[in-house]
Write a protein that binds this DNA or RNA. Structure first.
Lengths: 350, 350
DNA sequence: GTGAAAGCGCTAACAA
DNA sequence: TTGTTAGCGCTTTCAC
């Protein structure tokens, strides 16, 4: 049974036949037992499980997938696994998936359409039953490929005209409006916005929501105070420097994501200024780090758990519809302002 | 060919037979063409590729795996995907794997043996050809399961007596010694250590290396100045508080990882002290964030790319040995001190 | 150089 | 309730 000392003779991995032989039943009975078919007598069920345990057997998922046509695999493609927002999202998604008997394939597209294409292809080869596309970008052509392969999808902030593809809408406006109002109440009127890369849908939406919120607050927008960054720490530094080079400077900055805001915090410190006394800063996402920056970051919270749950639910509804007609669904994930220490009245108004 | 307007009639996913029929060859020829067998005439190769492109065909990886016995899948299990060190590691590992035609299955064990067991089992079902266990913990029993299933492994900081299992040794001592020396040169002698959870091998090793470095520097170790934390931001805060409650306090703190150090930075700020004027802090890992904390974190760099490369190489050597005897290998990944802004002479010695 | 056919480990349809 | 059997889509002998 066990490996010989010289480790030459190794036991072959047990398969369904091995189990059937040991339990003295047919392989069909083994299969039924494993899959919880009610049509197996208690007597045999017991014998089969005993054999399974004795052999430490488990089914080959490839064989299963091949014959059943179901892989119980979902893909999740994120924009950038290096931005803490995404690992937190992946973790939630994985937990939910595993709890429901699914597994996940993770890929990071890095906003590169070529990389995305290769991710998609690999997921297709692995016969995923659905893909959560959390790239927030514009990759319609690639997504079309998935849609044509009949793979259910759920997209963040993008609608595809396909019955198997659902959409998750992010309600940034509530959070962004709250952020702008908060600043206005503190006495700010000179508010800048460090946007995300314009190739991302989410970046555009966030920027537009900021503009709207400003208008609603009766505030004008200084063109040079909206600068396109890239959602990274370094980008935040660069964005702030650009703002500082201006003759007229803002007293508060709203950032398109937390990474940008954290970069700003660092740049402000380098520039000899203080947050929030000299400048207020607000982020977006509320990654775990936001609570631990100096000062703690006031930010617009985007609930990852909620997002993951919506994504999984959308996929599962499609994967398990058994015959029912597919319908496109829409989910809404909300945002809210989390007050911490990076905002204060503008200098001179304290 | 295309889907009907009412989306009822959908083209069946093309399979190898579809391609063979279109190219007017046998399925064996299609298979050979795809797998780059030299034994196919140029004429047919061309025809086959044409058909493949026309149909937008790609092989079903499950069928492939089933018959060939090779999944071209590697698993990577990390301790906690929420610690930025690990996404950075995963990204490197994935890049290398994909470049070599492999794919990866990612799991986060959260240092929970039960979770680890379930990850391992799922990876086994998916017939991974190797697993990189980057949990830095002590899960021998679970790993035995993998070893008995004949799955090559590579472990961080742990040796298993199994010919298919390689080990990556992390040379913390070089970096830690450099850190301690750096502090000594600055004039510190009261140096504390915020350790990781003792259930992690890496935590123990790091702590021991710290002790050794202190002895080498001729410095005594105050027992209460070594406190066990948990490698999280919150843990760093708690660890620092514990240190502050002491009658005699250190002037410098070396942390078992960057997350802990960042937590300390935050706690110090809350306590009204300043880093590095009142207290010097050193981290370990050099995650991307380390450069962006306030002040920028002096830390011991553990190269993720190097680690990922070693892990992949170890796995690949085992997976592709074709018949050659398996041998256990050891890889060494080094560490080095990165000087930034969180260290300075102790108060009064500036 | 090419094709026919066996079979990887499993599920599901059909028989008994 | 249980067993027999036909494939799932592919790779890989083995003939030709």
């Amino acid at each position: 049974m066990a490996r010989k000392v010289n480790s030459k003779t190794v036991v072959k991995t047990p398969d369904i036949r091995t189990v059937a032989a040991l339990a003295k039943v047919s392989i069909a009975t083994v299969s039924r037992t494993i899959n919880g078919s009610p049509a197996v007598s208690e007597r045999l069920t017991k014998r089969v499980w005993q054999a399974i345990e004795q052999l430490n057997y488990f089914p080959n998922s490839h064989a299963r997938t091949l014959v059943s046509g179901r892989s119980r695999l979902f893909g999740i493609i994120v924009e950038n696994i290096t931005n803490p927002f995404f690992p937190e999202l992946i973790q939630s998604f994985e937990e939910i998936a595993v709890a429901h008997g699914y597994e996940i394939l993770v890929s990071s597209s890095n906003s590169d359409p070529a990389v995305l294409t290769s991710c998609v292809r690999r997921m297709l080869e692995r016969k995923v039953e659905g893909v959560a596309v959390m790239t927030f970008g514009e990759e319609e052509p690639v997504l079309d490929q998935l849609a044509h392969r009949n793979v259910p999808m759920v997209l963040a902030e993008f609608r595809l005209d396909d019955p198997k593809t659902s959409t998750i809408l992010l309600d940034y406006s509530t959070g962004i409006r709250a952020a702008v109002n908060h600043l206005v109440v503190l006495g700010h009127s000179k508010i800048a916005f460090l946007a995300g890369p314009h190739k991302l849908h989410s970046a555009i939406t966030r920027e537009n929501d900021f503009r709207t919120a400003m208008h609603e607050a009766g505030l004008g927008i200084e063109k040079t105070w909206i600068v396109e960054c890239d959602h990274t720490l370094k980008g935040g530094v660069a964005g702030f420097k650009q703002l500082q080079a201006l003759p007229e400077r803002p007293t508060a900055i709203v950032c398109s994501n937390d990474m940008t805001a954290i970069g700003v915090l660092r740049a402000v410190y380098n520039g000899g200024l203080r947050v929030p006394q000299d400048l207020s800063v607000i982020g977006l996402d509320d990654i775990d780090f936001a609570e631990f920056t100096l000062p703690p970051l006031t930010t617009i919270r985007l609930d990852r758990t909620e997002l993951a749950r919506a994504a999984f639910e959308a996929l599962r509804l499609q994967a398990e519809k058994d015959g029912k007609p597919t319908i496109q669904r829409e989910f809404l994930v909300s945002t809210s302002l989390v007050l911490r220490g990076s905002t204060a009245p503008p200098p001179g108004k304290g």
